[in-house]
Design a protein around this nucleic acid. Structure first.
Lengths: 196, 196
DNA sequence: TGCCGGGTGGCACTCGGTGTCACTAACGTC
DNA sequence: GACGTTAGTGACACCGAGTGCCACCCGGCA
């Protein structure tokens, strides 16, 4: 089982490097396989699709988010609990930030990966919607749980974009900033461009 | 040019019918082409990808949204202007609602089409973000314009989902309900499940 | 008649993704 | 030591989406 983890890491590393250098669409599975020292067939034994090579094990991320949401205190506002969970899940060590940047740049920049992300985010939305439903006593399919799930994810995605583009801010700060706007109904919209 | 519009309509009609009956992934381009009475090669002259057969000319939709946003009055709240534009763009005639339902069921239900929708929505987000940027004097890449764009689209998508699943409500009502929640910072979260 | 341009179909090709089979290297059992 | 088992791998064939290229047809026009 150690071999598997090793080759999987080699695949992801090779894919990430080739994608960022040449562009997602331009890179062929054979090229990734060659770079990773495996065959084309073996590539698909480790990674379901080409796009999945960029997302590590996102499933465990979602599972962690779900666990965090399950143990939130009831006296905490719902949006705050979701924000805290997002922040915690995305609390990377400083050494991992460069790879995170690389991944995010691909996911947010390459159209094919943008498209694929929707499928991945569907799991996140489901988990958040169930959390909101539990908290408000509604069904997960009702308007409010769905809306909170999709718009908080929109907030998180936007925070990621800003964090990636800016380069000086903290991911946690950007997440908090986005969630604050959301929770207060966009007070920034009522602030004119220039006024002391 | 009349021939083109006709065959294009035949393609979309055949695709929509086959997709809803058999499922998006199961249907082959050859089958759509056969049903539309054209060759496989001609199919791709009218429709860029298999997924595009479901989205009519979404580009004109986005252009209409952009025009509507451009002429909004300055004294109208920004979120209200976006909501009104969404409602207006999606104001279908009663006779077109069945086809809209069919389309939406596919787009929101089939994973492959969900994924593709992300690319389509990127244009909508850009238009809305530019509108918000104009109104607030910020750049379209700043946090607030991006966030408003993505979360209003999330609201619209959720409204579509609820409208599709419910069957008794009006699309305009669902859109207004979602935007109201958003504009007020989710007052529904502060309402306990059962209390007179 | 010849020319031209739009619309079309056929064909070959690339590439992502899947199913199948054979091979090898462990590993334990008799 | 011979044997079956199992995990991991590679080779091959196959399917479907999408693209490039070329030949064809047909209506308009000089």
């Amino acid at each position: 089982m150690d071999v598997r983890a090793d080759t999987r890491a080699r695949i992801e590393q090779a894919a990430l490097e080739l994608f960022t250098r040449t562009g997602f669409e331009q890179v062929t599975i054979d090229e990734i396989a060659d770079a990773a020292g495996i065959s084309r067939r073996t590539f698909f034994r480790y990674v379901a699709t080409k796009a999945d090579a960029v997302w590590g094990d996102f499933g465990s991320h979602v599972a962690r988010l779900e666990r965090l949401l399950a143990v939130t205190r009831v006296d905490q506002p719902v949006l705050a609990s979701i924000c805290a969970a997002y922040v915690e899940v995305n609390d990377y060590a400083a050494g991992d930030l460069p790879i995170l940047r690389q991944r995010l740049a691909l996911i947010l920049g390459e159209p094919a990966l943008q498209a694929h992300s929707q499928v991945r985010y569907a799991d996140v939305d489901r988990v958040v919607a169930e959390h909101v439903a539990r908290r408000t006593g509604q069904t997960p399919g009702a308007l409010l749980p769905r809306l909170v799930a999709t718009s908080t994810r929109a907030a998180a995605t936007t925070a990621f974009e800003v964090w990636l583009a800016d380069g000086t801010t903290t991911l946690a700060d950007d997440l908090h900033a986005a969630f604050d706007q959301l929770a207060l109904g966009f007070p920034g919209l009522r602030t004119p461009p220039s006024r002391p």
